[in-house]
């Protein structure tokens, strides 16, 4: 899987590249408009992370160029502007997703995997890990080919964990992903624990070869045995 990161801030670009490389993606990067345009014209990528404000031109023009070349790349806009208008505008121009800075790396990983999955699995949006199989579109979980029922939040948590397997997930990142923006000031995110506890129990009871570990004070980590 090849990913292009278009971001002019060196440090941010580096940290995104390192994070994606941990997921065994092949990552290339571009720091300005011209380089970005050269790369998207010359090569094929599975996913493009696109910053809007670039030296030399707007990221939206890159999006336009992609559209004109009839390329089917997945594009995720990463922008410092978090406004609904911008989001709608970007999505109308053909972007697949929109992520406002600052974001959590685990969120980025989940989004990248999600857009890639949507287009690559022949329309079958399925994640498999050990003996666990998730049909994302139909929201179904199979462990050892046996269906397991999860509530909406447990399902979202599991999907998020699997997208970030073996990586430490910050509890704020998890809370934001599952409970949305409303919860962003809720004290300490301790309330997410009960959902995790239920999910953990279900995974254990059904013999899933996965384990959710708590890292005290920081967050959680999903280990695939």
């Amino acid at each position: 899987m090849k990913i292009l990161v278009i971001e002019d801030e060196d440090e941010l670009r580096n940290v995104i590249v390192s994070s994606l490389e941990k997921e065994n993606f092949l990552v290339e990067s571009a720091a300005d408009y011209t380089t970005a345009l050269d790369k998207v014209t010359g090569y094929q990528y599975d996913c493009i992370l696109l910053d809007i404000m670039l030296p030399g031109g707007s990221g939206l023009s890159v999006l336009d160029a992609l559209k004109k070349m009839r390329k089917q790349e997945n594009v995720i806009i990463i922008s410092a502007k978090n406004s609904v208008d911008d989001k709608v505008h970007g999505l109308n121009l053909g972007a697949d997703d929109y992520l406002a800075k600052p974001f959590h790396l685990s969120e980025l990983t989940a989004r990248v995997k999600s857009v890639i999955r949507r287009k690559s699995m022949d329309g079958q949006n399925i994640i498999e890990l050990n003996n666990v199989k998730i049909n994302v579109d139909d929201r179904l979980l199979y462990i050892n080919h046996e269906p397991v029922s999860l509530n909406r939040k447990e399902f979202d948590i599991l999907t998020y964990f699997i997208a970030n397997k073996n990586r430490l997930i910050n509890k704020a990142a998890l809370a934001e992903h599952i409970w949305g923006d409303h919860i962003d000031q809720a004290d300490d995110f301790e309330f997410i624990y009960s959902q995790i506890k239920n999910l953990r129990k279900k995974l254990k009871d059904t013999g899933a070869q996965l384990e959710i570990q708590a890292v005290y004070g920081v967050g959680y980590k999903l280990i695939a045995h």
Binding site: E9, E11, L12, V15, I16, S18, S19, K22, A80, K81, A100, K101, P102, F103, H104, L105, S106, R167, L168, N170, Y216, V218
Partner: peptide, 25 residues
């Protein structure tokens, strides 16, 4: 908006740092 980028860099770098196994609890 300008604050968002340094904040993003700081948070993301620290997140990467927490994933290093050499760190103590």
């Amino acid at each position: 908006h300008e604050l968002q980028t340094p904040l993003a860099i700081s948070i993301n770098k620290l997140e990467l740092l927490t994933e290093k196994n050499s760190l103590s609890d």
